[in-house]
C-alpha cells in the first residue's frame, strides 16, 4: 500500500469524522480520538455521565465503519458465558443454544460496546481482557477469531456502589480512555434540548452514510500507517523521557498541589502503554498529513493513552481523574523536546 493509498484513506478518515460530527455535536475532540484509535486498532474506554451520547456516538461510528456492532450491559450478575451464548426453550419445547453478543457477528464483529464495564464482575473483566489482547475466544471446542473487532467500553465514574474497579491489567488493554463531556457552548446545549432531530437517536444515526470505511481493510491500512510514519531519534528520546517521567514524576520536578509526589506513584506507564501511545501518535501524524511524528502528535494523544494506565497509591485513587490530568499536564510541561 503506497502513499497514494494512504492519502485516499486519509480522505476517507476525514470524511468519517465529518459524517460523525454532523450527528454528534460538540464532540470534535473525542471523535478525532476515536478515529485515531480505529486506525491504530486500539480499544477505547469511554468515560462520561449517563445520557451524554456515548452509545449514539458508537452507533454512528459503527454505521460508518460497517461490520457487526454488539452491545452488552455490565451488571453485577453478568457472567462470562453471557457474552458467549445464551440458552432458551424453543417453540419445539427443546432447549436451544444461540450465540451470545461476542459470537453473533462472527469474524465480522467490528465494534463491541460494553456499557458500564465497572458494574461487571472480575470474571467478566478477565474474559474481556483476553479477547482484547488476543482477539480470540475458545468456545464450543472451537477457536473464534475477531480480527476486526474494537472494544468500546464505558464506565460511570460517579456511581461507585455495586461496582468493581477495572484492574490495572485490564485498563492497560485499552489504548485510550476518552472523556465524553457535555458540550460547553450554550448554543450547542440549546440545540440538544430543542432540535428534535437529536431526540431520536436511531434516526440521527441513520443520517450517517453507511459503510464509509471497509471495516475489513482497516487492519491493513493500520499496519501501513505504522510502517510509513516514522520517528526521528530526537522524538524517540522525547518519548523515552516522557515514559521515565510517568514512572517517577518527582525526579523530574513535577509537583501537584496537596500531593506527596514521592508517595503518589505505584507504577507508571507500561511498555505496552508507550507502544500504544506511539501507535496513536503515528495515526495522528498521518491524519495531519505528516510523514513523521512530532511532539504535537504525542501531545494530542498523551493523556488519553497514558492516564488510565498509571497506578496511584490507593489513598489517591478516589481522585484519579483530576490527579491523572494534572500529572500528564505536568509531565508535558516539564519534559523538553528537543
Amino acid at each position: 500500500m503506497g502513499d497514494q493509498s494512504l492519502a485516499d484513506w486519509r480522505k476517507l478518515a476525514v470524511k468519517l469524522e465529518t459524517e460523525i460530527n454532523k450527528v454528534i455535536v460538540g464532540q470534535e475532540s473525542p471523535i478525532r480520538l476515536i478515529t485515531t484509535s480505529i486506525f491504530a486498532r486500539g480499544h477505547v474506554l469511554l468515560e462520561g455521565d449517563v445520557g451524554v451520547g456515548k452509545t449514539t456516538l458508537l452507533k454512528a461510528f459503527t454505521r460508518a465503519i460497517g461490520g457487526g456492532y454488539e452491545r452488552v450491559e455490565g451488571t453485577i450478575d453478568l457472567m462470562p458465558n453471557d457474552l458467549i451464548y445464551h440458552t432458551y426453550l424453543g417453540e419445539d419445547g427443546k432447549p436451544h443454544v444461540s450465540p451470545g453478543p461476542m459470537l453473533k457477528s462472527g469474524q465480522n464483529l467490528s465494534i463491541f460496546f460494553f456499557n458500564e464495564i465497572n458494574r461487571a464482575r472480575p470474571q467478566v473483566h478477565s474474559l474481556l481482557l483476553r479477547i482484547m489482547a488476543e482477539r480470540t475466544l475458545s468456545a464450543f471446542n472451537k477457536e473464534h477469531y475477531f480480527p476486526h473487532m474494537i472494544v468500546f467500553a464505558d464506565r460511570n465514574q460517579v456511581e461507585r456502589e455495586e461496582t468493581f474497579e477495572i484492574p490495572s491489567a485490564a485498563r492497560d488493554r485499552f489504548m485510550m480512555e476518552i472523556p465524553i463531556l457535555i458540550p460547553k457552548s450554550d448554543e450547542m446545549m440549546k440545540s440538544l434540548i430543542f432540535e428534535t432531530r437529536f431526540h431520536d437517536a436511531d434516526n440521527l444515526v441513520s443520517e450517517v452514510k453507511p459503510n464509509l470505511l471497509k471495516f475489513d481493510k482497516l487492519k491493513d491500512i493500520s499496519k501501513t500507517i505504522q510502517e510509513e510514519i516514522t520517528a526521528t531519534d530526537a522524538l524517540k528520546n522525547y518519548a523515552l523521557n516522557l515514559w521515565k517521567a510517568t514512572k517517577s514524576p518527582a525526579d523530574y520536578g513535577i509537583k501537584i498541589p496537596d500531593l506527596d509526589m514521592n508517595r503518589l506513584m505505584i507504577s507508571g506507564s507500561s511498555p505496552r502503554g508507550m507502544m500504544m501511545m506511539m501507535r496513536a501518535a503515528r495515526v495522528n501524524a498521518w491524519l495531519n498529513e505528516r510523514s513523521s511524528v512530532t511532539p504535537t502528535d504525542i501531545h494530542a494523544v498523551f493523556h488519553e493513552t497514558i492516564a488510565h494506565r498509571l497506578v496511584f497509591n490507593p489513598v489517591y485513587e478516589m481522585r484519579r481523574t483530576v490527579i491523572a490530568r494534572d500529572l500528564t499536564n505536568g509531565i508535558l510541561n516539564v519534559i523538553n523536546a528537543p
Binding site: L332, N336, P338
Partner: peptide
C-alpha cells in the same frame, strides 16, 4: 542550527515557565 533551535526552545520554556509547544 540544532543548538540554536534548542537554545531558543529553552529560552521560551524559561519565560513561559513550562515546556512551550505550538499548542
Amino acid at each position: 542550527i540544532k543548538k540554536a533551535i534548542t537554545d531558543i526552545h529553552h529560552a521560551f520554556d524559561l519565560i513561559s515557565c513550562k515546556t512551550l509547544f505550538k499548542e
